[in-house]
Design a binder for these strands. Structure first.
Length: 218
DNA sequence: CTCCCGATAT
DNA sequence: ATATCAGGAG
């Protein structure tokens, strides 16, 4: 586990490497962001943007999503993967938006997670990106980076990872740091190729040092 | 814990 | 061929 000083050095480095880290899911309003994040489960942002480009032309409102048969919506998002669950959730979510929310996307995590297909991570992204609520959404990248670098314990589940990060990072930096960690994970410390040899954080990264040692032995 | 799942990188 | 991708629900 890293010390507070080491963690702040990491945050500074993230900022130097990715000063303009941001949400890469294309969207024009909070409702489109909800749909985009829901679709992004176990799928790359690039592919989501490819699909939502046409999707958001065809479907503008919750009413539009429930006006078509489920099978049609499934086909419209099929290339995303997990498309049956996602299509079903989008229609259920649209019904809830109309029946209970007056067509307005809620601004708090607690309200957002009540929507079908919206869990803690999606709720945090929407609250943070669309409404400026301080939050740290723990996705696959944030979890991997937190564990490799030692922001949390290896065995922590996503809830524990989020708690650890919220405890160790100043609240006014939650949202920025969250995006920078995603960029760091997506473009530098990748799942399959961490690029330790060129990493500015190698000297304080236990995983990185282990990796380098293994490589040297082989 | 398992299942959902196509596209892409390695 | 296999791992991974801005996870969530049962």
């Amino acid at each position: 586990m890293l010390t507070k000083k080491e963690i702040h050095h990491c945050l500074d480095t993230f900022g130097e490497m990715f000063p303009d880290a941001h949400c890469e899911l294309n969207h024009a309003n909070p409702f489109e962001l909800v749909i985009a994040v829901l679709l992004s489960a176990q799928c790359t942002d690039v592919l989501v943007n490819k699909v939502t480009k046409g999707l958001f032309e065809k479907y503008k409102t919750p009413e539009d999503y429930i006006a078509v048969p489920l099978e049609e919506l499934e086909q419209d998002i099929r290339s995303i993967g997990l498309y049956r669950n996602k299509a079903k959730n989008i229609q259920k979510l649209s019904h809830m938006m109309i029946d209970e929310l007056n067509g307005i996307v809620p601004e708090t995590q607690d309200e957002l997670v009540k929507l079908p297909g919206v869990g803690r991570k999606t709720a945090n992204v929407v609250a943070s990106v669309a409404f400026g609520v301080p939050a740290i959404a723990v996705d696959t990248h944030v979890e991997r980076i937190s564990k490799r670098l030692g922001f949390c314990r290896w065995k922590d589940n996503v809830t524990e990872v989020e708690a650890a990060l919220m405890k160790k990072i100043p609240m006014d930096e939650w949202s920025v740091t969250h995006h920078r960690m995603i960029f760091f994970g997506r473009y530098h410390c990748k799942a399959q190729s961490p690029n330790c040899p060129e990493c500015p954080l190698l000297n304080l990264c236990r995983e990185g040092k282990k990796r380098m040692k293994r490589k040297a032995g082989a």
